[in-house]
C-alpha cells in the first residue's frame, strides 16, 4: 500500500507540475501562477501528517527544481517544500479540518514556502532580486494559492484519504 501511495502521490505532483508550467501561464498575473505542487503537499500533510508530507515535499521540490524550464540552484524548492510539509503537518488536528482551517493552513504554508525559496535565493544571490519585488511576488503567490484552494484541496485530500482509509479516519 505504501508503494502505491507513493506512486499515486508522485503522479499527482507531476500532474500538478505540468499544469503549473504549461497551462496556468495563460492565466498568470505577471508570470505568477498558483503553486499547485505546494497545494498537493499541503493536502497530503492535512490528511497524512508531517512525515509523509515532508517526503512528498522533497520529491515535489526536486521535480520543481529539475524539470524544465527550471534554472535555479537545485534543492531550493525541495528545501522549501520539506519545510511546508513539516509546518502543514504539525497544524493538522485529528478531526477533519474545517474549511477555514484548510484555507489558513494553505495561506501559511504558501507564505512560508514562497518566502523560504525567495530567501534562499537572496542568500545564494541566485538571482539577485530587490526585496520589494520579492514581497510583491510572495503576496500574489499566496493570493493565487488561496484562490485555488477550494478547487484543489478537496480533490487532493479525498484522494489521499481513499488511498488508505483506515489510517486517515481516526
Amino acid at each position: 500500500m505504501t508503494a502505491l501511495r507513493a506512486f499515486v502521490a508522485m503522479i499527482a505532483v507531476a500532474f500538478a507540475l505540468v499544469l503549473q508550467v504549461s497551462v496556468f501561464p495563460h492565466f498568470a498575473w505577471d508570470g505568477i501562477v498558483p503553486n499547485l505542487c505546494l497545494l498537493v503537499v499541503v493536502g497530503a500533510a492535512l490528511t497524512r501528517g508531517a512525515q509523509f508530507a515532508m517526503l512528498l515535499g522533497f520529491g515535489a521540490g526536486l521535480l520543481l527544481d529539475l524539470a524544465p524550464p527550471a534554472d535555479h540552484v537545485a534543492g531550493r524548492w525541495a528545501l522549501a517544500l520539506v519545510v511546508v510539509g513539516y509546518v502543514a503537518g504539525r497544524v493538522r488536528q485529528d478531526v477533519t479540518p474545517t474549511a477555514t482551517g484548510v484555507v489558513a493552513t494553505v495561506a501559511a504554508s504558501s507564505f512560508v514556502g514562497t518566502s523560504l525559496f525567495a530567501l534562499s535565493g537572496v542568500i545564494l544571490r541566485d538571482p539577485a532580486i530587490a526585496i520589494p519585488e520579492l514581497l510583491q511576488v510572495i503576496v500574489v503567490a499566496v493570493l493565487w494559492d488561496i484562490l485555488l484552494t477550494p478547487f484543489v484541496l478537496p480533490v487532493v485530500m479525498t484522494m489521499f484519504r481513499q488511498l488508505e482509509p483506515d489510517r486517515a479516519q481516526v
Binding site: 508550467v21 508570470g31 524550464p69 534554472d71 535555479h72 525559496f117 525567495a118 535565493g121 538571482p127 510572495i138
Partner: peptide
C-alpha cells in the same frame, strides 16, 4: 513555447 517557469522561482525561463 510549451512551458513557462513560475515567477515564484524568480528565474525567467521557458521551455
Amino acid at each position: 513555447v510549451v512551458g513557462l517557469g513560475p515567477s515564484q522561482s524568480f528565474s525567467r525561463t521557458v521551455t
